[in-house]
């Protein structure tokens, strides 16, 4: 359990701002990518990597480490930024995203990028891979925890509910999902495309312990990460209410930026909003 101090949260907030700047620049330079769903996941990833996960960037395969799997793999820019800030690879590599020869693939690839635990991005798959890691942890009586980030559109995939059933069946209390509940998917609002409502009671019905937080509030996120430690015999899910495109006025709740990079002009505007002198 980590103590949630004001200093810690202030530090995380400044890291989050840096991650947002990275996401804008990376996707801007690449000319493609998924900025909206990367920006909604920033506080979740920053709080995990800088305040919650046991991990060691100098030894990415340390057997005792906690695992994190980005099942909504299209948020890869957010993950890469966080990994580079942790020191898994040089910051310069961020600007090679999606280019031929880069270690930073469009979607996470474990064989390419130091710190990436699983290859994922075809939705639903990372969730089951993470489950397998949690099962191995139980089998080996290790006390690491496995976290996985799901998109809210992703839970339309049938296999998500196969995993929901089996993780509960196997009492994986070392397994925590976080739902990036930003309400939008490529084609529009999730409830217009294919309603997954009611969300919380579905997970409860599958035997999961459910927590709901503001996914941009570090106090609430860190508190929830402490809470999941206390759950016994069931997996847990933190439903994180987020805003797609969070932090950039013209990207917020605008699903145009689900899978489209900002133009050079938009990059400039966004960086100004994020306090960078260009």
């Amino acid at each position: 359990m980590s103590e949630i101090t004001k200093d810690l949260v202030q530090n995380l907030e400044s890291i989050a701002k840096q991650v947002r700047r990275d996401i804008i620049k990376m996707t801007g330079i690449a000319g493609s990518g998924h900025p909206g769903g990367s920006l909604s996941a920033v506080e979740i990833l920053v709080s995990l990597y800088f305040a919650r996960l046991k991990h060691n960037p100098m030894d990415p395969h340390w057997p005792e480490r906690d695992r994190f799997v980005l099942s909504k793999g299209h948020a890869a820019p957010a993950l890469y930024s966080v990994l580079s800030l942790c020191g898994y690879f040089p910051r310069d590599e961020l600007w090679t995203l999606r280019k031929v020869g880069s270690r930073l693939q469009g979607h996470p690839s474990r064989l390419d990028t130091p710190g990436v635990e699983a290859s994922a991005g075809s939705l639903g798959i990372g969730f089951a891979i993470a489950q397998g890691m949690a099962m191995a942890g139980k089998l080996d009586r290790k006390d690491y925890r496995v976290f996985v980030l799901l998109g809210d559109g992703e839970i339309q995939e049938g296999m998500v509910w196969e995993v929901a059933m089996s993780a509960s069946n196997y009492h994986l209390d070392n397994f925590t999902a976080i739902l990036d509940y930003n309400g939008l998917q490529l084609d529009g609002f999730i409830h217009d495309v294919m309603s997954p409502f009611p969300i919380a009671s579905k997970w409860r019905a599958f035997g999961w312990e459910v927590f709901e937080v503001d996914g941009h509030d570090f106090y609430q996120l860190l508190e929830a990460f402490n809470e999941v430690e206390r759950v016994r015999e069931s997996p847990s899910i933190i439903i994180a209410h987020t805003v797609k495109g969070k932090g950039i006025s013209f990207m917020e709740n605008n699903n145009e930026f689900h899978g489209k990079a900002p133009t050079p002009e938009q990059v400039k505007l966004a960086l100004m909003e994020l306090g960078e002198v260009v």
């Binding site: 990372g126 397998g132 949690a134 099962m135 089998l139 296999m159």
Partner: peptide, 26 residues
């Protein structure tokens, strides 16, 4: 019994879960 997991009628789940176990050294 500890090293055998019946995943139920869910082959997609089984294959990706197998990967997670393998990536953890199995």
């Amino acid at each position: 019994p500890d090293r055998f997991f019946n995943m139920g009628i869910a082959e997609a789940n089984m294959m990706a879960t197998a990967s997670g176990l393998a990536l953890s050294g199995k």
